[in-house]
């Protein structure tokens, strides 16, 4: 089944708030081979003017995961997870994610294109904090392989 082009422009319900834990920041930082004290040492983060540990630049993927799950579960989208390849990824930040942030992501499908039997789906997750202020937008381009 090809990807349904009608999902272009669709905006999903905001995800449940995700509370960024200090130990989760450390766990993620270790997993991406981070060595910045801002990711591990609260005193170092405080000295740099942050209220708590700073998350690594790709940490928003943890929050984005919930939105991509929404997309894959959408009954009429026609996206078969086993055929999905990650094509591109972008993060555009207003500010870094800090431990203690309560983040909510809203997914919009901004583009669905066909290319040589494959479909390219661009999914944009806008991530805001508890006050509704923008933190980061995570943009994924997924390549959904057509029938071989």
């Amino acid at each position: 089944m090809p990807v349904n082009p009608d999902i272009q422009g669709r905006v999903f319900a905001p995800t449940a708030p995700y509370l960024v834990g200090r130990e989760k920041v450390r766990e993620f930082a270790r997993a991406v081979f981070a060595s910045s004290p801002l990711n591990f040492d609260v005193a170092a983060a405080a000295a740099a003017g942050y209220s708590d540990l700073v998350a690594p630049p790709t940490f928003p993927v943890v929050v984005q995961e919930a939105t991509l799950a929404q997309l894959l579960a959408e009954p009429d989208a026609g996206i078969d997870f086993s055929r999905v390849v990650h094509g591109e990824q972008r993060f555009s930040y207003t500010r870094p994610i800090i431990a203690g942030d309560e983040l909510t992501a809203t997914l919009a499908v901004t583009s669905v294109k066909s290319l040589g039997g494959n479909s390219m789906v661009t999914a944009e997750s806008t991530i805001v904090d508890a006050r509704g202020s923008h933190v980061v937008t995570a943009i994924s381009t997924l390549v959904v392989r057509g029938d071989a």
Binding site: A31, V32, A34, S36, T58, H86, R90, F91, S92, Y93
Partner: peptide, 28 residues
């Protein structure tokens, strides 16, 4: 995303406390 996540770390270390990342993009 692991490759993307670790590839930016040398930049993060170079930047230190002097600034912030505004945008990060890769093609796999």
């Amino acid at each position: 995303m692991l490759t993307m996540g670790l590839a930016v770390q040398p930049v993060v270390d170079w930047l230190g406390e002097r600034g912030v990342v505004l945008d990060y993009h890769v093609r796999f």
